[in-house]
Design a protein around this nucleic acid. Structure first.
Lengths: 253, 253
DNA sequence: TATAATGGTTCTGCCTGGCCAAACGGCGTT
DNA sequence: AACGCCGTTTGGCCAGGCAGAACCATTATA
């Protein structure tokens, strides 16, 4: 997307305010005004306008994100048909493995978590639905990129770069493409603490009828608790078969 | 909430635009401009500003709600601690009954659906997470209001009125309070096609330690398919015990 | 093909309305 | 009782949002 020529600054400000409120987990007028670099009265007016429609709510002396966004958010998620078909499979996989299972889609060259399910031993990460991540530094992202044409992948890397998330993140382009080749061959990706230290995961793409990835699902587990045999021998098959179910269902209906 | 004195019109316009896009399930600039009563260029600027941050996305020649809202929406939902504790119970209830199960909270005198789960025979309604409804015309709302002080209920009815949703909706205030008395006694509410024609439901409040309702869960089923015995004799107990589990867990942690 | 119609994008200048600063009022603290 | 901190209100200035028209791109019609 090229630069906007005439951005509506007021809208930008509103969005910034909302993001700040979420970051701070609730905030007061002055606090927000400081960060946004606009006067208190302006912030106050924004908040009141949003509050009118319950996009924010005032609780005591601080403002919070309102449930009105749930309508838009849930709607946006449901527009990805993959969500509906994948959800049961993700839940099931979480229950069976006992671990953390995630569903990710690619939008504008970045990954967005659509859904997660936690098994009873699942690690508690800070991941949340709607979170955006780089594709190259997660198993999920690699699984998706492996099933995209090379030029598309190049374009994405050009745009977003390959910043290191941990010291194991692949930051060299050639190495990365070799990795993708391997993923394509075995049809699943392994994330060896490339996204978060101490966390490994197995990710499998969900493709359309033409071997193009639409999304990916993964199982994440702490390197310590899960030994290599379970991780490298058993998990891949479980994730693969879950993804397979989703693919079949998705490409039929 | 009193009227805002200095609403930020630009923000209002943005919100209107977003709501229109959702309503129309995707829309073009001209289409939106018509409805919002502003020029095409203004709408265009708004959309571009939103697109910059992926709050909207352009797909072909129409704009759609973007996944950036999922972050805010999911966050807003998770701020209600009841969501986390109730979700498993709602899922389980849906599976056991095979019907549609909903979770509703009260905000500013109206009901907001937080979550739904569908059993394998569940009716397909247009309800979605984030949807706002009147409290007096749904079983869920009645269940909540029954466990609120009378003056609070009066205030809510004053503010929002008692519009009829179907010909069975209770629109008389005295009758309504009698209904609430009965609900309080049996601890569950029955919705006899008061919210939607042909749809009945059993709703049970989730209360805090002081008998004040925080939320409610319900099972909805078509009047035809489910006979009176199952509906009046069996369902209430199933919903009651599910709600009970949630209450216990919620009031402990 | 030509031509028209439709819808998205760009541009310009007017004037609204969003913002700042300052003042006010409510609360809690010293 | 005076101070300090915050949210809210007010007034006035001028940035910036909007309308309108011109400009493209694409599809429909003949």
């Amino acid at each position: 997307m090229a630069q906007t020529n005439h951005p509506v600054r007021t809208v930008d400000r509103t969005l910034e305010i909302l993001e700040i409120i979420r970051e701070l987990d609730g905030a007061g007028v002055s606090e927000i005004a400081d960060r946004v670099q606009v006067g208190k009265s302006a912030v106050h007016n924004h908040l009141n306008t949003l509050a009118q429609r319950e996009y924010v709510v005032k609780e005591g002396d601080e403002y919070h994100i309102g449930l009105a966004f749930l309508g838009l958010g849930a709607y946006a998620r449901n527009r990805n048909e993959i969500y509906d078909t994948a959800r049961p499979a993700v839940d099931k996989l979480a229950e069976e493995t006992g671990e953390l299972v995630n569903l990710l889609v690619e939008k504008q060259g970045r990954g967005i978590f659509l859904y997660k399910a936690e098994g009873d031993q699942a690690v508690q990460l800070g991941t949340y639905a709607g979170q955006r991540v780089h594709l190259h530094s997660t198993g999920l992202g690699k699984a998706i990129l492996a099933f995209r044409p090379r030029e598309e992948v190049e374009a994405i890397l050009d745009e977003h770069g390959m910043p290191a998330a941990t010291d194991k993140t692949i930051t060299d382009r050639e190495t990365f493409f070799e990795e993708l080749d391997e993923i394509r061959e075995q049809r699943y990706a392994v994330d060896r603490e490339e996204g978060l230290p101490g966390l490994r995961c197995i990710a499998v793409p969900i493709t359309d009828g033409h071997d193009r990835a639409l999304a990916a699902i993964s199982v994440s587990c702490p390197s310590q608790r899960v030994d290599d045999e379970r991780f490298f021998e058993e998990l891949p098959n479980e994730v693969l078969s879950a993804a397979n179910v989703v693919e079949l269902e998705h490409n039929h209906s």
